[in-house]
Design a protein around this nucleic acid. Structure first.
Lengths: 190, 190
DNA sequence: CCTACCGATCGGTAGG
DNA sequence: CCTACCGATCGGTAGG
């Protein structure tokens, strides 16, 4: 029986992700990460170049996942309500699929330095704007009624992204995604 | 014309709150705070005992505000929908009333050490449970329909608490509070 | 409120 | 992947 050995680099990133989530990026030292992996701090640098490189990798991987997912939904041939539902479900699935990485993505990106910081913020805005265009279309079709489209997007995203702070999921992931879709579709309907 | 001079201690706390919000508690040094106030780092200690004391003060002040507010609503003689509405409005008002302190309350409390940490978590739970009891009563009266009361509370609170991360309010505070109440009442109604 | 300073810890490097 | 170590910075104190 062979044991699947996780490549060190992946292991370091995973351990770091969990520590970044629990303690925060700044409060997590390279020695914390090394100790969790079971090696010396200096040895980490055989696999990665800096602490920020790990943060960069997590933040941009998640940002790409979110953007890829919303673009797929956008290109499908669905009603606007269905597009909205699919976007919410996909967003929740990405979060529950990797809660630790989502927490880092949402809470620790501010510790990126330029130019990565600006790039990351631009990706965030792009995602928000795509989501906004979906709600906007729902309003234009007379299906949704909102006091402000920006408000609706931000209220939604804050709610979904908050999952990573929950002490428990309250519902299993495959019910959580549709529960979110339902509550917000109802909330936005005219 | 006399200029109202802010007592040093209050000034230090306010400056620290803003820095904790922007950079995070761990990444904010006493020297950062001192520089923003315009004094030397060592001079801070004439007014406060430790960095954590500032965090403690912010977190517990906000926790008490939230708990006081929800208990007032609970004791009023209103319909359950009205209680729900008032709770949401009050919650949003507290956040928009001090966004920086709310951000610290929501994002930095994990850096408290025991026994304050456990006390703080208990207060959070108490608030969530009170909110939960309001929704539960709405369900019992046949007004609300939710897949899980815990889910509804957490989805709500995540959404409201997310305000502190918004790049802009999307709506002025006196419309934001009722917009939140409306969207979630609609979302929870049977 | 300042100067001067403490021990601890940080991210990271040299060299093997 | 390790030992040994670097300069910088941390929260905080002594003493005025």
């Amino acid at each position: 029986m062979t044991t699947a050995v996780k490549p060190r680099k992946k292991q370091i990133e995973q351990v770091a992700t969990n520590l970044f989530k629990t303690k925060g990026y700044s409060a997590t030292s390279m020695r914390d990460i090394a100790a969790s992996v079971g090696i010396e701090a200096a040895s980490i640098y055989s696999h990665i170049n800096s602490k920020e490189e790990i943060l960069h990798s997590i933040c941009f991987r998640m940002a790409n996942e979110f953007l890829t997912s919303i673009n797929e939904v956008l290109n499908a041939n669905d009603s606007i309500i269905e597009k909205f539902r699919k976007t919410v479900v996909a967003h929740v699935d990405i979060i529950t699929g990797d809660v630790a990485a989502s927490a880092v993505f949402w809470n620790e990106w501010r510790h990126l330095s330029e130019p990565a910081l600006s790039e990351f913020i631009a990706m965030q805005r792009q995602y928000e704007n795509t989501f906004k265009s979906i709600i906007e279309q729902g309003v234009n079709e007379g299906l949704f009624e909102v006091p402000s489209v920006s408000f609706a997007v931000m209220a939604m995203l804050s709610s979904l992204n908050g999952i990573q702070k929950w002490r428990n999921y309250t519902l299993p992931p495959n019910e959580l995604n549709t529960a979110f879709a339902d509550i917000f579709i109802k909330g936005l309907l005219k």
